[in-house]
Simulated assay, not measured.
Amino acid sequence: MDIEGEEPDPRFTLANERTFLTWLTTSLALSAGGVAMAAVPRDVFVPWLRTALAVVLVLLSVLAGAMAYPRWRHVQRALRRKAPLPRLAVASLFGYGVAGVAVLALVLILIAGR
């Protein structure tokens, strides 16, 4: 790795690596959720809303996967420089995005259960 600075405590480097892998796991889970939502039979949920939820989940998956490595690198750089850790600018997007999908899916489940 070509990041300048001092080698950080291995525990911090390993924690950063675990976080990187968690971002990838989250990306995979969001993608699977999107595919599962798209596979729901057309007569169960409102088709356009089901498709919209699937697209949102897959887009969140793409974002999580695409930002995993750059995030790991920025945190590693901060650790080596003993600088403050960079904040995660899209944290609210992930939180509200997943919560919004969950609420809409719950509404669809309740409507379909009637």
Results as ranks from 00 to 15, higher is better:
Lys82Tyr: 09
Ala99Tyr: 10
Ala66Thr: 02
Pro86Ala: 11
Leu53Pro: 02
Arg73Asp: 07
Val90Gln: 14
Val46Gln: 08
His74Gly: 04
Arg77Val: 02
Leu60Glu: 08
Ala66Arg: 07
Leu63Arg: 09
Ser61Gly: 15
Ala99Met: 14
Trp48Ser: 10
Trp72Met: 08
Leu93Lys: 11
Trp72Pro: 01
Val75Asn: 10
Ser61Cys: 08
Val90Glu: 15
Val55Lys: 00
Ala83Ile: 07
Trp48Thr: 08
Gly65Arg: 06
Ala91Trp: 14
Val90Lys: 12
Val101Pro: 05
Arg71Ala: 02
Arg80Cys: 02
Val101Lys: 12
Ala89Trp: 14
Val58His: 00
Ala64His: 01
Pro86Ser: 12
Val55Ala: 11
Phe94Pro: 04
Tyr69Val: 05
His74Tyr: 06
Val55Thr: 08
Arg71Met: 01
Ala68Asp: 05
Leu57Asp: 07
Met67Leu: 09
Ala52His: 00
Lys82Thr: 05
Leu93Ile: 14
Ala102Glu: 10
Lys82Met: 09
Ala78Asn: 05
Val75His: 07
His74Asp: 12
Ala68Asn: 04
Arg50Asp: 04
Leu85Thr: 04
Leu49Met: 09
Gly100Ser: 07
Arg50Glu: 06
Pro70Ala: 04
Gly95Met: 13
Ser92Phe: 14
Val56Ser: 04
Ala64Asp: 03
Phe45Trp: 11
Met67Gln: 12
Pro41Trp: 06
Leu79Ile: 05
Ala89Phe: 11
His74Arg: 13
Ala78His: 02
Pro70His: 06
Met67Gly: 00
Ser92Val: 13
